[in-house]
Amino acid sequence: MSRLLIILASRWTRLVLVLLIVLALQTTLFKELRPFGVAAQIILLFVTCAGIQFGINIGAIVGLIAGLMFDFVVSTPAGLGSIALGLTGATAGLYIYFFPNPIWWLRLLTVAFVSVVGEIYVLIAQAMVGLGVVLEFGLLKIIAVVTAVNICLSPGFFLVTRWTLSERKKTR
């Protein structure tokens, strides 16, 4: 019983529940709010923020779990988004490796960079399994809008990911 409670109170259970909410927002609100006709990618932003704050390993795990959940609600092959987001989380986690002391503007810059890289990972993953990827000017617009939206929303998502993934101190 106590073991079950420990599992339920762990940050990974919290992560799955928070991801369900983020996923629901992605498939409802952010599917409809399309600045310049482009859907914002808050799942990508969540993974990026987790990676930037908690490093490569946790970034990769959050990306893999978030991607797996996302794959089950979209029509692309299951597992594809998981791999792409896992890589994105790991890439974001490199931030701590290079800059151990957080600087706010550097974090925003990293969010922008990882957003671009994350979208490219998705395209590469789709191309690798033979899904049609049309390389056109519109792709640049998609990447630019996703990056801009992610920068705007990132302060809020840093707070959400910190609350979700931080380990609680044991009280006696």
Partner: peptide
């Protein structure tokens, strides 16, 4: 533990891609 989790999740993803295709 985390590295094992990453490997496990990655393998699961690859397996799912293969099966779903």
């Amino acid at each position: 533990i985390r590295r094992r989790a990453i490997i496990l999740l990655t393998l699961t993803s690859i397996m799912l891609v293969t099966l779903d295709l």
